[in-house]
Design a protein around this nucleic acid. Structure first.
Lengths: 182, 182
DNA sequence: AGCGATCTGTAGCGCTCGCTACAAGCCTGC
DNA sequence: GCAGGCTTGTAGCGAGCGCTACAGATCGCT
């Protein structure tokens, strides 16, 4: 195809696209290279190690996540903490988010092995999401910092329940939260 | 060692112990066999397939989980929905639960690939936990079914945040929930 | 005792994994 | 123009993977 020189920067988006389609845990060098139009040999050349490649990939995915929050999510504030959680839950139910969540649970599983790159990526994404929630709580929330943490906790729980096929529990759980700030 | 005959039933606990120490995603036949004092050859003989072995393992782990709820967790009811969630969070913080959670996040990640065995195991564990929460809400909770779903959602969210190194968010989030039933 | 079914060890198949050795291209600076 | 670096292709290494073929060993049964 394009005979242009390759670099980490040009490769990472192509690799990320493949990972979003096929999962992170199952990603190995040869299929990744094929998806990026190169060879495993060159991936090692550019990144040095598969671990370094995955670390670059995680950083890129965290950036993608932050960008997605600014585009796919509404700009206005919610009417209540509960409504804020339900909004995020409903939006992330859209099918275009499924690939991202598949990777997300691979990241969470990777964190359980105390892998620094995974922990960094996950922590970064949670920080971004927490800041977003703070900005989208009702303007009259008495304690946005605490409220955002409560909302983020229920959001993540709901998404885990949905991931394991218990979306009904998640929806009922969200609906049963307090409607107004405590 | 003991030259006694082996069977699925006698093997599964030994295999489960190895998986709890080393994770589920990384488990392969030869190390599993070594941990159980046999050979990969015999594991395939008894289970037919690695997938079938994993399915049996997941079923066993789900049973272990149900049993653990009855022993490690308090018998009395909580004073509030929030207290119930905080109790479960505090107990599962004990180090002896770490191996179980490592496997748990592997299961969640496996569910994202629509693997039936993983979905069954995860759904079973959530059902057991949900029933436990129903029984441990305050006796005067106005809607135990809905309340238990809300509590379960925040518990799972808190545990995910803890898994990715954001335990501080989880604890603040739990503390900011409503103290009494909505 | 002897036969058939049930178990188990040895060896190895074909495959993929991350990674490397070696050599050839290519592009830049003198 | 040509020397020396940066980039790339080919081929393969050693290891581990799930799984199987084959041959004994062992057991229950008549």
């Amino acid at each position: 195809m394009a005979p242009t020189r390759m670099s980490r920067e040009s490769l990472v988006p192509l690799l990320a696209a493949h990972v979003l389609q096929n999962g992170l845990a199952a990603a190995s060098l040869r299929p990744l290279a094929k998806a990026a139009g190169t060879s495993d040999r060159m991936l090692i050349y550019h990144f040095g190690t598969k671990d370094a490649l995955v670390a670059a990939l995680l950083e890129y995915l965290a950036g993608m996540f932050a960008a997605a929050l600014d585009t796919a999510f509404p700009k206005d504030r919610s009417a209540s903490r509960r409504a804020c959680a339900q909004t995020v839950y409903a939006i992330t139910e859209e099918p275009q988010f499924a690939p991202f969540f598949r990777v997300w649970w691979d990241i969470v599983a990777g964190c359980s092995d105390d892998n620094a790159a995974y922990l960094d990526a996950a922590g970064g994404m949670m920080d971004v999401l927490l800041a977003w929630v703070v900005d989208h709580l009702p303007a009259d929330d008495p304690d946005p910092q605490a409220g955002a943490r409560a909302v983020l906790t229920v959001i993540e729980g709901a998404q885990m329940l949905r991931a394991v096929g218990c979306g009904d529990i998640a929806e009922a759980g969200l609906a049963a939260l307090e409607g107004r700030p405590a």
